[in-house]
Amino acid sequence: MQPEIGIRAEWVDFRAPAVHVGIASMHELSIMTEALRMATDTAQAAGASRVRKLRLRIGSLSGVVPDALRFAFDVVCHGTMAEGATLEIEAVPAACWCATCQAEFECVDFFNECPRCHDVSGELRRGRELDIAAVETS
């Protein structure tokens, strides 16, 4: 289910805009496609015939919406060795490093005030994760 990518160096005449219906334009779909590729490559290299479960690790500031990933998962797995597999998403809360306190604190933004000393920190330690943690095969 690869979307068509067209590169056109030379266009001569005006063309009517193409109409695309149906597939949500989400980067979650691209990311899930890549997760499935990594999972099936790993499973095949290990001699497995099925992917039963995928475990992802997604940071709260990664810009990726877990629900959109779940939606994309069902779409990309259809007709592959991962059809019917379950998706586990481990949410990673974001954390900043406070240099004054020499400690981490949980945050919801890229730039935050330390709840202890109220100094401002932009040094993000966690929260940008977009990882595939493990795959369960059989």
Binding site: M38, A43, A46, D131, I132, A133, A134, V135, E136, T137
Partner: peptide
């Protein structure tokens, strides 16, 4: 059933 760690 095997769990293969990737962490990538």
């Amino acid at each position: 059933i095997r769990t293969l760690d990737l962490n990538r």
